[in-house]
């Protein structure tokens, strides 16, 4: 059941987007998120959505995978969408008893849902196409200036690498423990929320215990392989900004400028 989570996973590939420098990808993702939130009318929202779907298709990863990553957040999208529809004051366009749908509310809910969806798509775009190691390596590079403020950038990056590496392992283990507890008669699926949370204790305790054992083993294995922190460490992969990266930067910034132009040419939607 837990194996279906695709959010934050990496799918190896050879596409244009896969090959981009991870530092460039991270920065461009931030720019893209800005563009999404800057789009003030339906046209710019559509242009944004179209561009993102184009990037998604460029990754050559099945669209279903993206949809799967959205499954868990769909509830939030629907929920905020529904709330926004009813909780806005303005000109009413639809009335049914106490429920009043206003023009502003309608626009608002579409904008919020679309922005959330695009948010997930953009972040999936990054994590699906970038291996966790190069992602953390890029983050390590990007936050390196912070070392001046005595922040241990290498240690942070190493922690992230290991955390990402152990997500699938721990998920698998959780599944196993759940099955083991069920086979002993544990009831994990019925009852109210409070009972269900309580019934998860027998799953979490063994998970914690085994995680400590894993951590001990991993530390041992890392020491055996001469790990001594970030000092004097080299990296196999050298990041270089190539022509592909420059094209990507031009495209994304072009999109940002385009969205800003549309925003200034057409009136913003009342929210």
């Amino acid at each position: 059941m837990l194996n279906n989570i695709t959010l934050g996973r990496f799918f190896p590939g050879n596409s244009f987007i896969h090959k981009l420098d991870p530092r460039v990808k991270i920065l461009l993702m931030i720019v893209l998120l800005f563009t999404v939130f800057l789009s003030a009318n339906y046209l710019s929202l559509f242009v944004n959505f179209f561009a993102i779907m184009l990037f998604v298709s460029l990754t050559k990863i099945n669209l279903k995978t993206y949809l799967k990553s959205m499954k868990f957040i769909l509830f939030i999208v629907l929920f905020t969408g529904m709330l926004n529809i009813f909780y806005a004051k303005g000109t009413a366009i639809f009335k049914l008893g106490v429920f009043v749908i206003t023009d502003e509310g309608f626009n608002n809910s579409i904008f919020v849902s679309m922005r959330l969806i695009m948010l997930i798509l953009v972040s999936s775009l990054l994590t699906f196409t970038t291996s966790p190691t190069s992602l953390t390596y890029a983050i390590e590079r990007l936050i390196r200036p912070l070392a001046k403020f005595k922040i241990k950038t290498h240690e942070l990056a190493m922690m992230m690498t290991i955390a990402l590496r152990f997500i699938p392992t721990l998920l698998e283990e959780t599944d196993k423990i759940i099955d083991a507890q069920k086979s002993r008669g544990a009831n994990l699926e019925t009852g109210n929320i409070l009972n269900r949370i309580k019934s998860f204790v027998p799953v979490l305790v063994p998970l914690f215990v085994s995680s400590f054992r894993r951590a001990y083993d991993l530390a041992l294995a890392m020491e055996c392989r001469c790990y001594k922190g970030g000092e004097g460490r080299t990296c196999m992969k050298i990041l270089r900004i190539g022509s592909n990266d420059i094209w990507a930067i031009l495209i994304v910034f072009g999109l940002l400028v385009f969205v800003l132009i549309i925003n200034s040419l057409f009136p913003a939607v009342r929210l």
Binding site: P12, S131, T133, T161, R165, T169, L218
Partner: peptide, 11 residues
């Protein structure tokens, strides 16, 4: 499972 540090084989 416990002695692998990275998510990609070559890393």
């Amino acid at each position: 499972d416990n002695q692998i540090v990275a998510s990609i084989v070559e890393d």
